[in-house]
């Protein structure tokens, strides 16, 4: 097994070995799943992001996500009542560590971010707090400069009373790499 580790490392880092700087922009969509949160259900979301990797191991990304939670249901006395999940708008900044360059091949990275989290529900004031997220992603960059990317993130938004709302986010998307500095 150990003899394959260098091969895996070469494959994972192959992309970044070809790039000294990369700029990309992309769109993505996926699932927004609340964790231990009975007042909303799983919903969907999509987003846009712009990423710059000044060196192959570190990158920064600006992102915007528009998500919605699914409507919750509660049955009382045999009658089921349906609430509103509401919509979430997130604008944030992420730091990526790992293979973040834009060279051809697979790029695996870890990430952490901070965001402005706004949750709107009917008849309720907008819940507006700072959110934090961390997770991992894998992007496979094709020779045409298009990258296919998957991300899994854990998001936590402290609600100001010593508790937090938490979500699991799974996104897939496409990025276009401008290829600045690609050798």
């Amino acid at each position: 097994m150990k003899k394959f580790i260098p091969v895996i490392l070469v494959l994972v880092l192959a992309g970044s070995a070809h790039a000294i700087m990369d700029i990309s922009a992309g769109i993505y969509g996926g699932i927004n799943a609340p964790i231990i949160q009975e007042n909303v259900k799983t919903g969907t979301g999509f987003g846009f992001k712009a990423k710059i990797a000044p060196i192959p191991l570190v990158a920064g990304a600006l992102f915007y996500e528009a998500r919605k939670f699914g409507d919750p249901k509660q049955t009382v006395g045999g009658i089921t009542y349906t609430g509103k999940g509401g919509t979430v708008n997130v604008f944030g900044l992420e730091a990526l560590l790992g293979s973040t360059g834009g060279g051809i091949g697979p790029h695996f990275y870890a990430m952490g971010g901070i965001s402005s989290f706004k949750w709107k529900r009917s008849n309720q004031p907008t819940f507006s707090k700072t959110g934090y997220n961390f997770g991992a992603g894998l992007e496979i960059v094709l020779p045409v400069g298009i990258g296919v990317e998957g991300q899994a993130k854990f998001e936590m938004v402290p609600n100001g009373s010593g508790a937090s709302y938490k979500s699991g986010l799974v996104f897939v998307g496409l990025n276009y790499h401008l290829g600045l500095g690609v050798m």
Binding site: I36, Q37, E38, N39, P72, Q74, M156, P158, G162, A163, S164, Y165, K166
Partner: peptide, 8 residues
């Protein structure tokens, strides 16, 4: 705040 949850 990781160990909190929302219940209905």
């Amino acid at each position: 705040v990781l160990t909190t949850g929302t219940k209905v």
